[in-house]
Design a protein around this nucleic acid. Sequence first.
RNA 1: GCCAAGGUGGCAGAAUGGUUAAUGCGGCGGACUGCAGAUCCGCUUCCUGGGGGUUCGAUUCCCUCCCUUGGCUCCA
Length: 480
Amino acid sequence: MRRVTLYDSMTRTTRDFAPMLPPRVGLFVCGLTPYDRAHVGHGRGFVIFDMVARALRRWGYRVLYVQSVTNIDDKVIARAAATGADPLALSDRNFREYLALAERLRIRSVNYYAYSTDHLPDILAQVGQLLDRGFAYVAADGSVYFSVAKFPAYGRLSGQKVEALQPGARLAPDERKAAPEDFVLWKAARPGEPAWESPWGPGRPGWHIEDTAITSRIFGPRYDLHGGGLDLIFPHHEAEIAQAESATGAAPLVNYWMHWGLLTLRGEKMSKSIGNTSSLEGALEAVGPDVLRFYYLNAHYRSPLEFDEAKSLAEAVEAYGRLARPADRIDELLARDGPERAGEELSEARRSAADDLVEQLDRTLANDFASREAIALLFGWSRTLAEDLDGLARWSGAALEQLAAPYRWGEEVLGLFGRAAAGPSGALPGAVAAAIAARRRARERGDFAEADRIRSELRAAGIELEDGPAGTRWTTTDRA
RNA sequence: GCCAAGGUGGCAGAAUGGUUAAUGCGGCGGACUGCAGAUCCGCUUCCUGGGGGUUCGAUUCCCUCCCUUGGCUCCA
């Protein structure tokens, strides 16, 4: 297992990562409340933790990655009521849509998506435990609240003092609570709302309880790593700590807390509540998974990241294109001629440069997942290879694989360099290959009007031609 | 008011107690080209919010002030 350091929000320091039962790692990330469609901001956190899980696995850790799905809550109910839909059907549909996007974004590292409603027995058990141990109370309407006064460590993660909080700063205080800082574990159902039976009457889980019920079930009372957006630190993660540590008596609930920075739009947080969102699907449609992942990972995970609809993705398209070009050329050659293709072998110096770079990439990323720095290293490799792109054709299959090693690393860990559309002319369908040949003949006899006509015809069909010293190359403009 | 995260070139964004502060975008120049585009090369050496302090040396560490964003019980 590689040594990994990461910034822990609880201690506000960068620490060596030491799982409790190496090489096993329990990883939990707060997922979506799918009352609406996912936006670009959601994608950031999930791509970041996809990278974290991929990297840890590459480095020898056995990661069990669980992500929650808050499929029942006030917003789901409100949205369902507004649209006449069934709440659970609504959240299920939105979540399935997200899953399809996640698949296209190559987010495949999550082992288990845990729906709140699939863990009701665990939730009821934990609420019961909190009541038995005296940390919670039942209100007149049958709702159950956690009594924050019973948990002195409350506020440690966020640095907040309970006395300094301003109840009602943004939301109207709930008058059923004994104290304004208390939070709800179980919400009594109002007429017409989805409800489950409980010892305290019909109701549904509060927002925070599902996550600790799920992690207690899967990991036990303590686990290694918890991720989430910076906006979840208070109150959500604070509440998780309070309820779980009170219910189980074991502490700390989590050994390492990682929080990612939010996406901003004109300097303001992108949020469904503010309404300044841009859909994840739209971004994925516009630029494809490689560019979108590149955009997310081209900033440190903890930094705020500005999403300018007019510029950010366009810039990422340019930058990623430059980064991936040599990788695409190598893959073209390998796809056309196979891994056994004949050619020169790499010099010892060249081969060890590739190996050294891969080691450097691992080392860089293992330092608090500095993906931006790793990408800068990959740019350096691309710059070297780009000096003689056409010259890549002289290498053997084995040599090309060695040159591609840093890109294979990027594929495995960052999920970039998807091998798709671009291809050499030889692999074209016959009709298109014939068109390119006809254009070549037209150019040779000086009939440029005909040559340009063929070029624009192919362009209309989604095929771009590129004339270079080594002949005409083509790429499709479709995106994977 | 309190808590947290930030403030780096035209822009997006790294990093570090010490040679020219990474990388990319954009811009400019050149190569290539029938043309265009694409691509490649070079340049873009005057960028670390203000003020103090520690140090031989601070963008980095400390203090203070200013500003931005997030949170204060809905949020990725």
